[in-house]
Design a protein around this nucleic acid. Sequence first.
RNA 1: GCGGGAGUAGCUCAGGGGUAGAGCAUUAGCUUCCCAAGCUAAGGGUCGCGGGUUCGAAUCCCGUUUCCCGCUCCA
Length: 517
Amino acid sequence: MAQDDLFRKIISHCKEYGFVFPSSEIYDGLGAVYDYGQNGSELKNNIRKYWWDSMVLLHENIVGIDSAIFMHPTVWKASGHEDAFNDPLIDNKDSKKRYRADQLIEDWLDKIQSKIDKEIEKAAIRFGDSFDREKFCSTNPRVVEYSKHYDEVHTRFIGALEKDDLKELKQIIDDCEIVDPESGTRNWTDIRQFNLMFETKVGSVTDDASKIYLRPETAQGIFVNYLNVQKSGRMKIPFGIAQVGKAFRNEIVARQFIMRMREFEQMEMQFFVKPGEEMKWFNYWKEERLKWHYGFGLGNEKYRFHDHEKLAHYANAATDIEFKLPIGFKEIEGIHSRTDFDLTQHQKFSGKKIQYFDNELNESYVPYVIETSIGLDRTFLSVIAGSYAEEKVEKEGEELGDRVVLRLAAPLAPIKLAILPLVKKDGLPEIARKIMDEVKYSFNCMYEEKDSIGRRYRRQDAIGTPFCITVDHKTPEDETVTIRYRDSMDQDRIPVKKVTEIVQDKINMRKLLQNIK
RNA sequence: GCGGGAGUAGCUCAGGGGUAGAGCAUUAGCUUCCCAAGCUAAGGGUCGCGGGUUCGAAUCCCGUUUCCCGCUCCA
């Protein structure tokens, strides 16, 4: 089967079995926004818990917080998002390529500058020791012309950027006759401003001062609470702060199902370390996080690191953990060494001293930060895609048909146990109901009596239910039921009294957490 | 945002100017079977949305929206 088809099938499966629906679907949907259904929200909760427990439960020096989506506007000035997330973009109609308008102009300016440099270089060689650079620049007609042109454009460019004057930027591109390096044409669209942060207003009387953003990442909620947590929790470096929450980005192109959504959930942990020790911890968390992913049991060969060559303005090392989806390897998690960039910035913009007094060194410093930042929705997709299997059902060498099964780790399954009377008579439903009423206090169960037993098993396979118990004619005699395992389709006979205990043991999150170590 | 393709029942799709279709799924009943596809019946769609052409539009035209592919973007 073509891999694209497989991906499509997985998306259909998500909708058909109540995992993921397009947002506001009855109104034709809303681009790049999705809702989690009855099974999807359970699975998502379980993945979230696996992450949270692996961080907060298993590490004495990591604590969790839950910061607000709204933050003081200055946070985004300090973090650099207001600048970095605000790009003037322009398209070339012939090459269909998109560029940042400011970069096109900068490139053009660089080109002029290098022409000037070349003239100077040539003259320097020609005149040797007697070369008077200043005099040459002010008299050579070619250099004078270039310089004048450069200064003119540069001044206009700076002015346009300051005033966010998109029309002037476009005019500069026209005036300088800047061409697309790809197509070589000047067939440009107008410049449009893309702000990747969503804006809204606070308060009933709105003016410019009340404009705030929906956070584009959860990390800043941790940084601005660094002092609060460190002091109130008496945290000693190295220590971490974990958080799970929604973040929002007004993506220009949002595609590939829940891989890139405009509203998404991040699970982030910022780990504060002594300056100079960041690479040690960077490598530690790289390995630690990979092991966490392995814990899903989807196949270790489906994961790989992708080290960043081009680093962000704040980072001195960065890698992604990628997962092999049917559409190729895709980034699920980023591990970044963020240096002291964020805390230093907040120190500067807030005027508050954000430092740690180290008793061993007897001095204070701004801690360095290792960030592990994972997309919950992407992880969800990796789990669904990695668990999805279409297979032939055989019994004693005889082919009985096909089934679709989600091979989810038992602790993650939306429904842990299905309780099925073999037939709808002879008092079997009543017994099954009684078991249901007892077991439902311990974990998610589902009772079903409609259709043949085989068909009910298949329905449970499709949503990843790891266990089914069937009440049959032997049950009234000896208080036993059969338990049927999703993956092997094998069955055992167990006492009704032991159902809770047996299932409880297998669905404990501990089963996953212990895999990490 | 650009280019290409697509949108008909919960799912997969047929129908290309003249009464809205199939298979599977769903619901109810029968059957009582330990691995889907036995029987009977029922429900469900103003054919993505809006406008136009036409006596008549799911079908032709225009716009729009959503999804898919490619480009682009992704600190």
